[in-house]
Design a protein around this nucleic acid. Sequence first.
DNA 1: ATGAAAGCGCTAACAC
DNA 2: GTGTTAGCGCTTTCAT
Lengths: 343, 343
Amino acid sequence: MAERGRTKQATMRDVARLAGVSTATVSFAINNNPRVSPTLRARVMAAIEQTGYAPDAAARTLRRGVAPSLGLIISDITNPNFATIALAVERAAQARGYGVFICNTDEKLEDERNYLRLMRAQRVAGLLLATSGRDDAAHAARLAAEVAMPVVLIDRPMSGLDWDSVVTDNVGAAHAAVAHLVALGHRRIGYVGGLPHLVLADQRLEGYRRALAEGGIAFDPALVRQGNYRPHEAAASTRALLAGADRPSAIFGTNAITILGVMQGIAELGLAVPAEISVVGVDDVPWATVVRPGLTTVVQPSAEVGALAVEMLLDRIADPGRPPRHEVLPTNLVVRGSAAPLA
Amino acid sequence: MAERGRTKQATMRDVARLAGVSTATVSFAINNNPRVSPTLRARVMAAIEQTGYAPDAAARTLRRGVAPSLGLIISDITNPNFATIALAVERAAQARGYGVFICNTDEKLEDERNYLRLMRAQRVAGLLLATSGRDDAAHAARLAAEVAMPVVLIDRPMSGLDWDSVVTDNVGAAHAAVAHLVALGHRRIGYVGGLPHLVLADQRLEGYRRALAEGGIAFDPALVRQGNYRPHEAAASTRALLAGADRPSAIFGTNAITILGVMQGIAELGLAVPAEISVVGVDDVPWATVVRPGLTTVVQPSAEVGALAVEMLLDRIADPGRPPRHEVLPTNLVVRGSAAPLA
DNA sequence: ATGAAAGCGCTAACAC
DNA sequence: GTGTTAGCGCTTTCAT
């Protein structure tokens, strides 16, 4: 019974013929041009209804030079932070008539470059970009050359590029987490972070150092571990930190992936949280309330990042000359109990 | 310094002019048509390199009638099962030169319908669809009418539609989980499920009943709770199940979202797992190894579902007349300790 | 207030 | 082996 192939679509000419008007009139009617009289418009709309006509996006794109779609370039959609951003992006775009191409670079610069090319070929109206490149002049220059269209940087800032950006307050997030631990009396606080070459990493480390300094605690590089976005590696880092002689009494894990690894590492060692080790994480990890006591985390406003970024991108598309905006959204410390006063 | 607007792209005519050939030759060269000599092809390629030319997808789509892109229609990308599917889909599609439009329906049939329209307008080459509709004739008929292009059903089967499909063995998954509990001596086993109108739900309930029957245990409807895909509701169901007089000694949570709610509900009641209540879940939830003891789950091959679905969709696109394939991928019980022998 | 027609960039049938 | 050209479906200028 079911059709499995492609059904031929009605075109504007079919509609025009049926309504007894020209294709120009159909076009103007569709695009709400006031030049068509209400009577005619009604006739056109009826014909559209009857034929099941839907405008061909390709033809429209060819004519207008730009497609009704946006590109979302991230490293990995299974990262909950990116998934939440993606959901918000897609819903906001959909509401404004745009489709969203999703691109997972897996942190590979070459993949990112390929996607930029692909998005250019697709004539997408604009790009939401969480770049995997390091924050240096060379990468900035290459990006500027390769992007060549409206773009909003999301989640991961690039200091050398004066483009619109929407990021969370990374310094503030790390500061809040670590200050919380310091206030509880902790003085040796381990830091388990993600990819060290991202600005984001510098910023979170900066927040960590600042909170330590405010507590009169000397920075000890031996307590800092950074690595890739794999729980396994974060677990290994955690075990290493906790195996040392002068082991930390608390650990800060700087994102959803690393905090997962941190908790796994602690579980493997059989240590009790928070009795033997206090923990603070980042991100609204779904399982925060499943572990007992609940995981204290600094929550990023991922959905807001996505929604705001779409707004800003559409503004940029509408007016390429407007001055760039840089939005830094605040984070929120949610205290649940995985960090306790130092005994 | 940075360009914020759109840079004009080189067209095929620019390339042709520079190479001193016709646009036809450029086109044939690009599409690897053997009629262009190696020498000429090299000249064309050089010109392409020099101009930075990239084919305009819109023009190509208009001409060919179909875009180099696929639509992925799911309910919610933040569901880890869908996120993993989406990642695999996107990577597989990208490798074959296709972009992927991501569509989150939030389980709303109207949104699903709008997306079908949008995908049709975009002239996507095909669709990967996890429909939110119930498995009845009315929905099947409507889908058949609205889709009108190559499609592969993923994750959620529809019995009335003889389309290609890739799903996991839902009966087997539930059976494995519950049989595991029965083997441990449990006889009152709670069932906390998701959306009851999906075939998927029927199948998992079927697996549950079958495992009970094999253990000689009567089915008790009072032990079955189904609801939406929200952890909060699953937590409430769990508390209700455990508040009853003849409370279950074990609970089966049928997906990543509900098992999260189940664990939250248990945490709220302060019950010890598995000493006071045994638990088995579904899906490769990242936090399975964080809770102690680890969460025993039936793991779905989500990435395989996504990758295989892309393969099948491209096969379908290449040959619309081929007989439909129905793939049911096996699941895998991973025993970690959240289910223990009944004391 | 409406229609005719050019042209967006590409493909492929046809001509040489 | 290579060039010429019509036309995919739409938007929009220009003419009426």
